[in-house]
Design a protein around this nucleic acid. Structure first.
Length: 731
DNA sequence: GGAGTCTTGTTTTTT
DNA sequence: ACAAGACTCC
């Protein structure tokens, strides 16, 4: 019995044992893609005696990289040296720090995320005295990222895009180059740089190129259909010497073109690697045949694809169903009722069910309905944790400690929590730094002794400088402890409690706890825990990497977030013309095909049951819309000719269930402002965050939102809306 | 520095 | 509809 080869089917085996040269693996949904990659790694190490560190596997997410590591380890056994399994970006970081001597950065460079990028761009525009109204910072940031993803410099990019008027072209080049200069001054790279700079370096420097090309005898790229030009070029350059590159992907699941991914990379792979062999993995181990058939009906309408057809041994199964709802609430209620029914009749747990949206905004109604009906759910979302204010603040402290040149971090926290360093003082400091051509921290040390600022400002700055020095002393401690010290020394928590309302404060504190937990985990897992690595790791981490689906809660997510996951029961909701396919793809056939792929990704997540829902009317972004069913439903033969639109199960009146399934959890929340309702009556004693203790004199319920007249000990009588005031009952 | 008001932009967001 | 940011005023 061979644990590496025996569990594989014929084509998987071909891919795993492929000797040398480029190989393109078309791995359909659920065809055992990860298994193939990990078994190949194990095969190379065990059978071909390849040194693990000479194998490079690149993925897109930390989650995927982690999963591969784990599964490969199981097969090979945890020997000391591991194969290199990384995300593209973390590989980029590794290469950059290894070759830092060839670059104009210090080894402890900071990585700027999208938000940092926007902050820098705002500054840039201001400095160039360009009217900010002429640019949307988001768009601009997107353009710069997209230029970097395509390995184009400012001029090339603006020519290609042809902004039509040369003034804008000029300005764009100006903005771009000042932005680049600022990154350098801050000793920082942005996400785009993590791919582009390694490519440029490999192209320009023969010795470096040789070193890295020599190193990797075998390279594997996961989700190849989503590579952008920079990623493609990086993979190509690295594999140039040994030419052992195996790319695995599925053109039908290419859904990130708007992020620069180029489906041609996989479709035209043989053009770039003429000697490439191709293998197709078409046996599916996930879904039933009816689901696969449905998915195929839809995806086969695409023109830009490689024909392949998934099949499974699971020939029988439930037919997918459609439900046309009257409105968005009806849609959510249908989903909820169906889940209840499945739970009761089929013993299916809500945790095995998932609801997929096209846009995040769709989740709202579902959250409302599920909360009201006590059905537990988790919103799996990718925006959140690392973008939250308190997390960004704490990270800024860490970034500054790791890289004192990071003025961006310094600006963020210099007066947070507030410590009397106002705008005036701040700009004074940074103007001085610019004049002297020194970093912000250095300027800080010097300006206190100059006569450029008032004594009060100098005092405040001096205090901050001392704080900084004190924190500096901790930089060799484990990151958790650094965070702890930062919290203590800055009084961060106290400020939150004092300044924010109770619910926001609570949520912020939970987030801080979560960050500490991440730091503690890092401390335990890393061989050599240190601040710089921790900051790097955490900037490259996203919510999607850490969030887990939940046992007893229905999973809500966008179709993009669903890629790579699978569920027993899938609800595709909002299957309407204009939503899926999204209206922005209306006149663009290529984008329309991507919408179809998105639909395909959704369908193929389902193991056993698939429900497609649409709604004749819905409210989105504040206006009512009337909708037609998605053309994809027609393509799937799910719309009968003139049959009534609704199908089983019948819509039933929602009964409030007594059973509380462990309460509902909403994990990916921003701090919520809405307090839970409390009941107040005359005579109750209450506490208010600002006004302190008081007694309720009377309650006026004539309004839609009841008003309480409260006599506060220190502030006298106040009329407060119960629903909005942060009131706590006390005894 | 904070509170209140106005403006803007809402597809998806692997890093 | 609704939230985040910018802007304004004390």
């Amino acid at each position: 019995m061979d644990p590496i080869l025996d569990p594989l089917n014929k084509n998987q085996k071909i891919a795993v044992t492929h000797e040398s040269g480029p190989l393109l693996v078309f791995a359909g949904a659920g065809s055992g893609k990860t298994r193939t990659i990990t078994h190949r790694i194990a095969y190379l190490i065990r059978e071909k005696n390849i040194q693990p560190y000479r194998i490079l596997g690149v993925t897109f997410t930390n989650k995927a990289a982690g999963e591969m590591k784990e599964r490969a380890n199981k097969l090979v056994g945890e020997s000391g040296i591991q194969p290199e399994l990384r995300t593209f970006h973390s590989f980029g970081v590794r290469l950059l720090s290894g070759e830092i001597e060839h670059l104009d950065r210090e080894k402890n460079f900071t990585i700027y995320d999208d938000i940092d990028q926007r902050v820098i761009l705002k500054e840039t525009i201001k400095e160039l005295m360009i009217d900010p109204d002429r640019y949307n910072v988001r768009t601009l940031a997107g353009q710069i990222s997209s230029a970097k993803d395509s390995l184009l410099d400012a001029t090339q990019y603006s020519q290609k895009k042809s902004f039509k008027n040369s003034q804008k072209d000029n300005e764009f080049v100006q903005i771009y180059s000042l932005y680049e200069k600022k990154l350098k001054e801050n000793n920082a790279y942005d996400f785009g740089d993590l791919l582009m700079v390694p490519v440029k370096l490999l192209q320009a420097n023969q010795a470096v190129r040789k070193r890295w090309q020599e190193r990797y005898q075998h390279i594997m790229v996961d989700e190849f259909q989503d590579t952008n030009p920079a990623q493609f070029e990086l993979a190509r350059l690295l594999s140039e010497k040994h030419r052992n590159i195996v790319v695995v992907g599925d053109d039908d699941q290419s859904i990130y073109s708007w992020r620069g991914a180029d489906i041609s990379n996989i479709l035209n792979f043989e053009e770039y690697f003429p000697e490439a062999k191709t293998v197709r993995l078409e046996q599916n181990y996930r879904s039933t045949q009816p689901i696969l058939d449905l998915a195929h009906k839809v995806i086969s309408k695409n023109t830009r694809r490689q024909e392949k057809q998934l099949w499974t041994q699971q020939k029988t199964g439930k037919q997918p169903e459609v439900y046309g709802a009257r409105n968005d609430y009806g849609e959510a209620e249908f989903v909820l009722n169906t889940i209840r029914l499945l739970e009761k009749m089929q013993n299916i747990s809500p945790g095995d069910c998932a609801v997929f949206f096209r846009v995040n905004a769709q989740s709202r109604v579902f959250e409302e309905v599920f909360t009201r009906e006590n059905m537990p759910y988790v919103l799996i979302s990718s925006v959140g944790f690392y973008e939250r204010k308190e997390i960004k603040d704490l990270l800024a402290y860490l970034k500054l400690l790791a890289n004192p040149s990071d003025n961006n971090a310094l600006k963020r926290i210099i007066n947070r929590p507030t410590r009397g360093i106002g705008q005036k003082t701040e700009s004074c400091l940074f103007e001085y730094a610019a004049e002297q051509e020194i970093g912000g921290i250095e300027a800080l040390a010097k300006i206190v002794d100059s006569d450029l600022i008032s004594s009060r400002a100098a005092g405040a700055l001096n205090n901050f400088y001392n704080l900084y020095l004190k924190l500096r002393e901790t930089i060799n401690q484990p990151p958790v402890e650094i965070i702890e010290t930062v919290l203590q020394q800055t009084g961060y928590i106290e400020t939150i409690v004092e300044k924010e309302d109770r619910y926001t404060a609570e949520s912020r504190m939970e987030n801080i706890e979560e960050l500490k937990r991440v730091a503690a985990d890092y401390g335990e897992e890393s061989a050599n825990p240190n601040l710089i690595d921790f900051v790097e790791e955490i900037t490259l981490l996203t919510d999607l990497d850490t969030q887990e689906t939940e046992q007893s809660a229905v999973n809500f997510m966008t179709l993009h977030a669903a890629k790579g996951l699978e569920f027993d029961v899938v609800f595709m909701v909002g299957m309407e013309e204009g939503l899926l396919p999204h209206r922005n793809s209306e006149f663009d056939p290529e984008r329309r095909e991507e919408e179809r792929r998105l639909c395909y990704v959704g369908f193929t997540r389902a193991r056993e049951r698939l429900y497609c829902c649409w709604s004749r009317s819905r409210r989105l972004y504040g206006n009512h819309q009337q909708n037609l069913p998605s053309p994809f439903l027609k393509e799937a033969d799910l719309l009968g000719n003139n049959k009534p639109i609704s199908s089983t199960p019948k819509r039933e009146k929602i009964r409030s269930s007594k059973k509380l399934l462990g309460g509902f959890k909403r994990r990916s929340t921003r701090p919520t402002k809405k307090p839970p309702k409390i009941e107040l009556n005359a005579g109750d004693r209450v506490k208010h965050p600002k006004f302190g203790q008081g007694t309720v004199k009377r309650v006026d319920r004539q309004n839609s939102s009841p008003i309480a007249l409260i006599e506060f000990k220190k502030f006298g009588e106040k009329r407060l809306a119960i629903a909005y005031a942060e009131l706590d009952k006390i005894n």
